Amino acid sequence: MRPWRHVDGRLLYLPASQDVWNQLRARLQLAQRLSGTVVWVPHPGAIGIGVDVDLPIGGFVDVLLLPRDTTHWPLEGTQMEFYIWWIDEYPQIRLLPADPHHRREDFDEWISSQNGPAAAAFRSHHSTY
């Protein structure tokens, strides 16, 4: 069952159980590429976007990884590629748009200054950084 579902006219995030998430998470890797569809853009510029990645767990792109200019954000229904940016205990996959036009404007500079595991994994998969 899909985690992003319309219930009574509202889009809700109803992920699979923690057990399903734990099993799925063991098969995912930082910087892994996934296809997805943008399903939720609540307040452009505020928190980020929800993505259906055709798994029982949904994806989310944090506002900090998206362009400041919200006219460059992908719209609901946009099908595109993403990289896994973060995976933790919460049943949700944090994503980074694969298309540089849908990333923060200063991404190249920003990624080179980040020390976390997600940034390191991204840099190791993309030799230009």
Rank of each mutant, 00 (worst) to 15 (best):
R5I: 10
H125Y: 10
W40V: 03
L64R: 13
E81N: 13
R103H: 09
H102N: 12
Q114C: 12
P56L: 03
R5S: 09
A119P: 02
P100Q: 09
E81K: 11
D99R: 04
R123D: 07
Q18I: 03
G116V: 04
W40P: 00
P91Q: 02
V63D: 14
L30Y: 11
L34G: 08
I111V: 15
L75Q: 15
P117C: 06
V53W: 07
S35P: 13
G58M: 06
R5Y: 03
R104N: 08
W73A: 00
G9W: 06
R103P: 09
A120W: 12
R10F: 11
V53Y: 06
Q32E: 14
P42C: 03
A118T: 02
H101Q: 15
A16W: 02
V20K: 11
G59M: 02
H6K: 15
A119I: 02
H126K: 04
H43W: 07
Y83D: 08
P3C: 07
W110T: 10
R33L: 14
R104V: 04
G59W: 05
S113R: 15
Q23F: 12
P56H: 08
A120R: 15
L65N: 08
W73E: 06
P74F: 07
T128R: 15
P117F: 03
G50D: 01
S124K: 14
D8I: 02
I47E: 09
F122T: 00
S124P: 02
L95H: 05
R2I: 02
I87P: 03
Q29F: 13
Q79L: 01
Q92S: 10
Q92C: 14
V63N: 14
E89W: 10
R33T: 15
P117I: 03
G45P: 07
T78P: 06
L24V: 00
L28Y: 10
Q92H: 03
L34K: 05
S17H: 05
Y13C: 05
G9R: 05
Q114A: 13
I84K: 07
L34I: 04
G48Y: 04
V63R: 15
G9S: 04
L95A: 05
P117K: 14
Y129K: 04
Q32K: 08
F82W: 06
Y129F: 14
L55E: 10
R5T: 12
L12C: 13
A16H: 03
L95C: 02
D106L: 08
A98H: 09
T78Q: 11
L64V: 10
D62M: 06
A31S: 15
H101F: 13
R68K: 11
Y129T: 08
T128S: 15
F122V: 00
W21D: 07
F60Y: 13
A119W: 05
H101K: 15
D69W: 06
I57Y: 09
L28C: 02
D62P: 02
T71K: 12
R2N: 13
Q32S: 10
